[in-house]
C-alpha cells in the first residue's frame, strides 16, 4: 500500500481539488454558485453521492464485469442521486426549488463517475471512503468559496441558511457600508466564468506541491 488513508483524503482538499485542479464538474460549479447556501447544498449533495457510490463500486469491484462497468456505475450513481433528490424534496424543499435541475444532473457529473472509474474500481473500501470524502469536501469548499465571492460582490450578502425553512445567519455588508452598490454581473452567468477564471489563475500562482 503505497499511499496512506490520510494522503488519499487530503489530496482532494488541495492537490486535486476538483473544480480548480482537475477542472471537472464545471456545470454545477457555474450554474448554482449564486449564493453560498446553494453552493453548500450542491456540494454536500455531491459529496453524499460520491461517498456512497465510491463505497458500493469499491465493494462490487470484483463482481462487476469490466465490459458493462460503466452501465453498472451509472445505475449505482443514479440511484443515490434520486435518493438525494427525494430526501431534499421532503426535508429541504426551498433548496430543492432553487437547485432544481442541477440535482438530477449529478448523475452525469464527471467527478462522481471519474472517481468511480479511476479510483474506487481499483482500490479497497477504506481508501475509497477517504478518497470520496476528500474529493467531496474539496468540491464543497470550492463551491462555497466561489459562491461566497460571487454573492458578496454581486448581492452584498452571504446567505448560509436564509431560505424560508431555516432562518439563519445572513451577512449583509450593506448594513456596514451604506454606499455599497452590488455588482450584479457577478451573480449572472458570465460572472461565473470570470470569477472561476480568476480563482483558477490565483490557485495556479500557488505551486501544488
Amino acid at each position: 500500500m503505497a499511499k496512506s488513508i490520510v494522503q488519499e483524503f487530503t489530496k482532494g482538499l488541495w492537490k486535486e481539488v476538483p473544480p480548480f485542479r482537475l477542472v471537472l464538474g464545471l456545470c454545477p460549479v457555474l450554474g448554482v454558485t449564486t449564493s453560498v447556501q446553494n453552493g453548500l447544498g450542491m456540494g454536500l449533495a455531491t459529496t453524499f453521492v460520491l461517498l456512497c457510490s465510491n463505497i458500493l463500486v469499491s465493494t462490487l469491484r470484483k463482481v462487476i464485469p469490466s465490459k458493462v462497468r460503466i452501465a453498472c456505475y451509472i445505475i449505482i450513481i443514479a440511484t443515490f442521486v434520486i435518493v438525494v433528490e427525494q430526501v431534499m424534496k421532503a426535508f429541504a424543499f426551498p433548496l430543492y426549488q432553487t437547485l432544481g435541475v442541477f440535482i438530477p444532473l449529478i448523475v452525469v457529473n464527471c467527478i462522481v463517475l471519474g472517481r468511480a472509474e479511476a479510483f474506487a474500481s481499483k482500490n479497497g473500501i477504506i481508501l475509497s471512503i477517504a478518497d470520496g470524502l476528500g474529493i467531496g469536501l474539496g468540491f464543497t469548499c470550492s463551491l462555497a468559496a466561489l459562491s461566497a465571492v460571487r454573492e458578496i460582490i454581486g448581492k452584498g450578502t452571504i446567505t448560509i441558511w436564509g431560505a424560508p425553512l431555516f432562518e439563519g445567519p445572513i451577512v449583509n455588508i450593506a448594513h456596514t457600508f451604506p454606499d455599497f452598490v452590488p455588482f450584479e454581473f457577478m451573480v449572472q452567468a458570465p460572472g461565473a466564468f470570470v470569477c472561476l477564471g480568476l480563482m483558477l489563475c490565483m490557485m495556479n500562482l500557488v505551486p501544488s506541491k
Partner: peptide, 9 residues
Amino acid sequence: VLTVLSIIS
C-alpha cells in the same frame, strides 16, 4: 449483474 443491480436499485 446488471439485472440484480437494477432490481435492487
